[in-house]
Computed example of a mutant assay.
Amino acid sequence: MAILDVRIDDRLIHGQVCGAWIPQFQLQRIAIVDDEIVNDEQRKMALKFGCPEHCKLSIFNTEKAADKFIRKIDEGIRVMILCNSPVPILKMAEYGYEVPFITVGNISNRLGAVQIARNTFISPEERDAFVKLIDRGVKVYIQNVPNDPREDVTSKLKNL
């Protein structure tokens, strides 16, 4: 499996992912990692309905995802890991699967969140998860669409 991107976007499967990121990386599979969505049949069905036919969608809990990625179960497949926050990525790291970088897109504003970019707001829990990942050596970038410049926000997050 070639993990081409580890992306955080709280909208998950939506226009930018389907219209820009899937073609950009010529993705064959998107792996959504989320401990809640994996048990929500309606949400899983809606996400699968929104994914283009030529790109498979898998939805895993953090433990199963870490195991699959460690074992390279989809060797030779072009994959994007997609999460709605950094928390699942941290949990995967705690299960033994480390990622080298994260690309952050949209994270919506909500109570207690701090704006770190135009479309990106992080809660205290997300900030803590980012800091723990950064302490493990993970680089964090913000990039909404492939044509946008990739902005390294690693030190910005560490110092919030």
Rank of each mutant, 00 (worst) to 15 (best):
A2S: 09
S123V: 07
V99Q: 08
Q143Y: 07
A129E: 03
K91D: 11
D148G: 07
P124D: 03
F60Q: 08
M1Q: 01
A93W: 01
I70D: 10
I70A: 08
E75A: 11
C55T: 03
D128L: 12
Y95Q: 13
D5I: 13
H54S: 15
R127C: 14
D135H: 09
K48F: 01
C55M: 00
D40Y: 01
E151W: 07
Q143S: 06
G19F: 00
A65W: 09
K139N: 04
D34S: 06
K91G: 00
E126F: 00
I30D: 13
K91W: 01
A46H: 02
E98W: 07
M80L: 10
P86E: 08
E41Y: 06
I22T: 07
K139Q: 11
R136E: 09
A65K: 12
M92P: 08
S85T: 11
K48Y: 00
I70C: 12
L12Y: 03
N61G: 09
L12I: 06
Y97S: 00
C51D: 00
R7P: 10
V33K: 01
I59L: 01
D40G: 04
Y141A: 00
I70R: 12
K64A: 06
P100W: 06
N109F: 14
L82I: 13
I134D: 07
T62D: 10
Q26L: 08
E151I: 15
L12E: 04
S155K: 12
G112V: 03
N109I: 10
G96D: 02
D9L: 04
E125N: 04
E75F: 02
D34Q: 02
E41H: 15
I37N: 05
G137R: 03
E151S: 09
K56Y: 08
P100E: 15
L90C: 02
I134G: 11
K132C: 07
I73Y: 11
L157A: 05
Q115T: 00
R136V: 03
R127W: 03
C51M: 13
H14Y: 15
C51N: 04
Q28L: 03
Y97F: 13
G19C: 01
R29S: 13
V38Y: 08
K139E: 13
T154N: 10
L27H: 06
